[in-house]
């Protein structure tokens, strides 16, 4: 937060270069005001990402501890906003690997395969590989990482001989991606992850045709077999827009 403020002040002083001085000398106070508003704007964004409504809901639906974990998440996001991309990736990856213990879907949800929302994962204090991916994807998108650089990738964990899922980050379209995995806290290049065999990756945006986005959620009647849609509808109800 401090670093962000100093950055903005530096920006403001740069605007006061000699060529603009005449134009901008007078409304210095106004600019300072804008800076403050911008700072609060970031704060306000984080409040939207994890809204009070969701925290209250967690308290009702689960317990105070669940609400506390959501508050913690919000604080984490607030701290990470405006940070470098590298810090954001590492911070988000670490937060969920730490806060959410791995529990299989069969154990946790009594279902074969359940895509839980971050609210549910933090609330129930447990999740499996997809749940980590979803929570990290949501957090990163909210922090401003371009959607096109993120891919959700179906993989096979070779040593465990298990279906697995990771979130990949592509700095450029043709680059080898970075892998955010709940099996390890380190973020490594995909080429270093010899323990994983990629199967297929998808762009979450493509799964959802633009004009159908609003409808499905508003109608509240998505296809239950389309997990991504199901997830989005659920998250919408929990106060978070994916």
């Amino acid at each position: 937060m401090l670093s962000l403020s100093s950055k903005l002040i530096a920006l403001a002083s740069r605007l006061q270069s000699p060529s603009r001085r005449l134009l901008l000398a007078a409304p210095l106070g106004l600019v300072l005001g804008l800076v403050l508003v911008a700072a609060f704007g970031v704060l306000a964004d984080a409040m939207d990402w994890v809204p009070d409504k969701s925290i209250e809901l967690a308290q009702q639906q689960y317990d105070e501890a669940a609400a506390q974990r959501l508050r913690l998440w919000r604080e984490q996001l607030q701290q990470l906003s405006g940070e470098s991309l590298e810090r954001q990736l590492r911070g988000v990856n670490q937060f969920f690997n730490d806060q959410v213990p791995f529990v299989s879907d069969a154990q946790h949800w009594q279902q074969d395969d359940y895509w839980a929302s971050p609210f549910e994962s933090l609330g129930t204090h447990g999740g499996d590989c997809e749940d980590y991916v979803i929570a990290k994807y949501y957090s990163l998108v909210k922090l401003g990482v371009p959607v096109d650089r993120l891919r959700i990738t179906y993989v096979k964990a070779l040593q465990l001989n298990q279906a697995h899922m990771v979130l990949t980050y592509f700095p450029t379209p043709d680059a080898v991606p970075l892998v955010l995995d709940n099996l390890t806290d380190r973020i490594l290049l995909a080429s270093k992850r010899t323990d994983l065999a990629p199967v297929y990756s998808f762009n979450a945006e493509g799964m959802w045709l633009d004009k159908m986005k609003g409808q499905g959620i508003l109608m509240g009647n998505p296809n239950k077999l389309d997990r991504w849609t199901d997830l989005r509808v659920r998250m919408n109800r929990q106060g978070m827009d994916l």
Partner: peptide, 16 residues
């Protein structure tokens, strides 16, 4: 009838 293109990624191993 609108004809929005449907998109899907093609990958080779890890890379796109």
């Amino acid at each position: 009838l609108s004809t929005e293109p449907a998109e899907a990624d093609v990958v080779a191993g890890w890379s796109r």
